[in-house]
């Protein structure tokens, strides 16, 4: 596979990582995602890693960078579905994924994203405000 597909669903971008990524593929995903956010004005990104059997420091760093870059571009990122064995290993590796919001599954991740969109509309005046 040359690229990880990115799906658009309303204001959100959805990514399901289903392959064991080499580093260049992970970097391409990061570039593709930030490009799509900038071009399409997405307000949320959901990354499903339930198929990933391993997250090492490189993939962990990529997830953190995607979250950071998306935030600057106005989108929240939620990483969902991390396997317990992956979480245990990540912590022992020394990576806490600080700054990355996580949720147990896709459903909860979507709830988080919807809630953060509502919140920012209430704060800054989105379509539902009086401005």
């Amino acid at each position: 596979m040359d690229r990880i597909p990115i799906l658009k669903m309303g204001p959100f971008l959805l990514v399901t990582i289903q392959v064991d990524m080499h580093d260049r593929l992970a970097m391409m995903l990061q570039e593709d995602l930030t490009g799509r956010i900038a071009a399409g004005g997405a307000t949320g990104v959901l990354i499903d890693i339930s198929s990933l059997e391993m997250v090492d420091s490189f993939i962990g760093r990529m997830l953190g960078e995607i979250a950071g870059m998306s935030r600057i571009l106005g989108a929240e990122t939620v990483v969902v579905g991390m396997q317990p064995s992956v979480a245990i290993t990540l912590v022992e590796l020394g990576l806490s994924l600080k700054g990355v919001r996580t949720a147990l599954n896709v459903e909860r991740g979507m709830e988080l994203l919807r809630a953060s969109v509502d919140e920012s509309e209430a704060t800054y005046g989105g379509p539902g405000s009086q401005r």
């Binding site: 059997e53 391993m54 090492d56 245990i88 290993t89 022992e92 590796l93």
Partner: peptide
């Protein structure tokens, strides 16, 4: 165990890189 598998695989990935 799955946890032990994941630990040695992750260590391998770090050192291989």
């Amino acid at each position: 165990s799955l946890v032990d598998q994941t630990k040695i695989v992750t260590a391998a990935s770090e050192i291989a890189r």
